[in-house]
Nucleic acid binder design. Structure first.
Ligand code: MN
Ligand code: MN
Ligand code: ZN
Ligand code: ZN
Lengths: 134, 134
DNA sequence: CACGTTGATTAGACTAATTCTAATCTAAGA
DNA sequence: TCTTAGATTAGAATTAGTCTAATCAACGTG
């Protein structure tokens, strides 16, 4: 299991304590957190980090392919350390966001129906009640 | 073809010149505009309307079922006078958002694969290049 | 068809998320 | 170790959207 530092080096990203701390938090997280959630959590263990650095680091990690953005709600960005292609399910009661398999709807499937377009990606969000909430 | 005023009366929404102007603009629009785009366009013909009223009117029309929100980009809301269930295609070059048929991926399809969840809705966004841009 | 009530409109203050700025600091290659 | 390009920082600026409280107007009632 590679450490956050090893991931950064692999991607030729300059290693700093802040970046490693953000990446370490993200790698153990399945909650699709917002930048502010990341800031508050990392800030507890590393009180010197600033919000600007969290935003900067998110951009750096996005560019390096270590992170992706998920479009789940309008008011705030949520990020996802699972960079594989997949879809999402959002519980309308408790708000949790879970992963769903990409096979449910692939870009290829859309291509078959949309001949005149060049389809590169497809994202799907299902909404309803999760196992706990229904 | 019903007028904006007739639509408002049907939905028991108090008719005002501002609401009719916003609804008239929206009904002739397939661009999934943002609140600010609505404000700027309506403001040209109706210079007395305020931004607050545009936001208020959007909420009123959403509640009345004459409008829906589409989650397409993070930075701003986009609204859709097409209130039927459907999906969207966003062109990565020119930014236009077009409608896609709901049949491509329905809530029923997801239900079959997610037995433990109670799926209420499903939204899909495909991205790529449109006919003009590819 | 004037009246009165209830709800709509308004400008501008406010909030929250994000970006920018410019001074300071530091990772890492030479 | 030295150097420097790039990273970090606090706080200001920006932007989308909400709130406030004063004014206005739609429309049901008489
Ligand atoms: Mn995910
Ligand atoms: Mn649409
Ligand atoms: Zn739940
Ligand atoms: Zn295009």
């Amino acid at each position: 299991m590679r450490t956050p530092t090893q991931h950064l080096i692999e991607k030729s990203v300059k290693v700093t304590a802040q970046r490693a701390a953000v990446l370490e938090f993200l790698q153990g997280n399945r909650d699709h957190p917002s930048p502010d959630e990341i800031y508050r959590k990392v800030h507890k263990r590393f009180p010197y980090i600033s919000r600007a650095t969290v935003y900067n680091t998110i951009k750096t990690l996005l560019k390096a392919g270590l992170l992706q953005e998920v479009l789940i709600q309008q008011d705030t960005t949520r990020v996802d350390p699972n960079v594989s292609q997949h879809h999402h399910f959002k519980c309308l009661r408790c708000g949790t966001v879970e992963d769903m398999p990409y096979a449910l709807m692939t870009a290829d499937h859309v291509r078959k129906s949309l001949k005149n377009y060049q389809v590169q990606e497809v994202r799907m969000v299902a909404e309803g009640l999760c196992r706990q909430c229904r």
